[in-house]
């Protein structure tokens, strides 16, 4: 039941946007003008392509995020069983967080978390 409902929500979301766009396409005015298709930047023609190089910092943070996000997924099941498992789970998570913390500390010392 729940899995079908998931598809239902997916389709309804598509329906909302689809119906909206269709309605807008039907009633909105359409006019052709070459100036209108320019990028909205500063009034004069854009210099160079917009698909350009940008700083590597964004990638660095994305990679660090990827590592930590995978770790978070491991913490999800731990959090559910923590209370019932007691001491064993606590000691294990201290070891796990220790390794995780070392990773964060390494990135920190390597200046991967600095933006300049």
């Amino acid at each position: 039941m729940d899995k079908e409902a998931l598809i239902l929500f997916f389709l309804s979301a598509i329906a909302i946007v689809g119906i909206g766009m269709l309605l807008s396409w039907l009633v909105a005015p359409k006019s052709k003008n070459i100036q209108k298709k320019e990028a909205y930047e500063c009034g004069i023609p854009t210099v160079g392509s917009s698909y350009m190089q940008f700083r590597v910092g964004y990638y660095l943070f994305a990679i660090i995020f990827l590592i930590f996000d995978v770790e978070t997924v491991f913490i999800f099941p731990w959090a559910v069983v923590m209370k019932s498992m007691g001491m064993t789970a606590f000691i294990e998570i201290i070891i796990f967080f220790g390794i995780l913390g070392l990773g964060l500390l390494y990135a920190w010392k390597k200046n991967a978390l600095r933006w300049d």
Partner: peptide, 25 residues
């Protein structure tokens, strides 16, 4: 709803129209 939907000259039209779908989904 009554405003004209505009699109830039070199825009990737498919992705441009796909983005609102993903956000709303």
């Amino acid at each position: 709803i009554f405003k004209e939907p505009m699109i830039t000259k070199n825009a990737d039209k498919f992705l441009f129209n796909l983005a609102p779908f993903i956000v709303i989904i």
